[in-house]
C-alpha cells in the first residue's frame, strides 16, 4: 500500500475545503455498515420490515453515519490525525438507492502545545436534503507532516 500523506498543519487555513466524499448508498452499503457496527435492527437490512415501518427502503444506521464522518476527516487529514470530537445532527434518512455527498470546511485552527487543533463544519446531503450536519475537531502533530 502506498503510504498515505498527512496534511501539513502549518498550511491549514480557516475556509479550506475538504475533498468531497461521495457514497453510492446501495443496499449492500447499508447492510455492510449495519452489520460491521453490530446493529441488527431490521430497518437496516430487511426491506419488508422497513416498508411496514413506513419507509420505502432500508436505510443507513447512525453508527455508519459517524463511521463515514470519521473516514471523511481522516481521508483528508491523514493517518496521524486524531478525531477528538464529532457532533452530528441527524436529518433526512439515507435510503438504499440514494447517494450521499460529504462536504466540509475548516472553521477554526489553533495550537495546544505540539498538537494542532482543527475545527471542521461538515455535512452529508442527498436528494432529500441534509442527512447529517455537524462539527468535528481533529488533532494533528503541529510540527508538520511526517508521512
Amino acid at each position: 500500500m502506498k503510504a498515505p500523506i498527512n496534511i501539513d498543519f502549518s498550511q491549514v487555513k480557516v475556509g479550506d475545503e475538504l475533498p468531497q466524499l461521495f457514497i453510492d448508498v446501495t443496499a449492500t452499503v447499508v447492510v455492510a455498515g449495519a452489520i460491521a457496527t453490530r446493529d441488527f435492527m431490521p430497518v437496516h437490512h430487511d426491506r419488508n420490515y422497513a416498508n411496514k415501518q413506513g419507509a420505502p427502503e432500508i436505510f443507513m444506521n447512525i453508527l455508519s453515519d459517524t463511521a463515514y464522518c470519521s473516514r471523511f476527516l481522516t481521508d483528508w487529514a491523514g493517518p496521524e490525525a486524531m478525531v477528538r470530537k464529532l457532533s452530528i445532527r441527524l436529518g433526512v434518512p439515507a435510503f438504499a438507492g440514494s447517494a450521499l455527498t460529504y462536504t466540509g470546511t475548516v472553521t477554526a485552527v489553533s495550537q495546544r502545545g505540539t498538537e494542532g487543533i482543527i475545527e471542521i463544519s461538515l455535512r452529508a446531503t442527498n436528494d432529500l436534503g441534509d442527512h447529517v450536519s455537524g462539527v468535528a475537531v481533529i488533532g494533528l502533530p503541529a510540527s508538520g507532516a511526517s508521512a
Binding site: 500500500m1 498515505p4 460491521a36 457496527t37 463511521a67 473516514r71 481521508d75 493517518p79
Partner: peptide, 24 residues
C-alpha cells in the same frame, strides 16, 4: 478489519501493523 472494509476506510493505522508502528 471488517469495519474498515465495510466503510472502505483505508487508514493504515487500523489494519497495517508495520505502518501503524511508525506513527504517533
Amino acid at each position: 478489519r471488517h469495519w474498515a472494509a465495510a466503510f472502505e476506510d483505508t487508514n493504515p493505522v487500523y489494519t497495517d501493523p508495520e505502518f501503524a508502528a511508525g506513527t504517533r
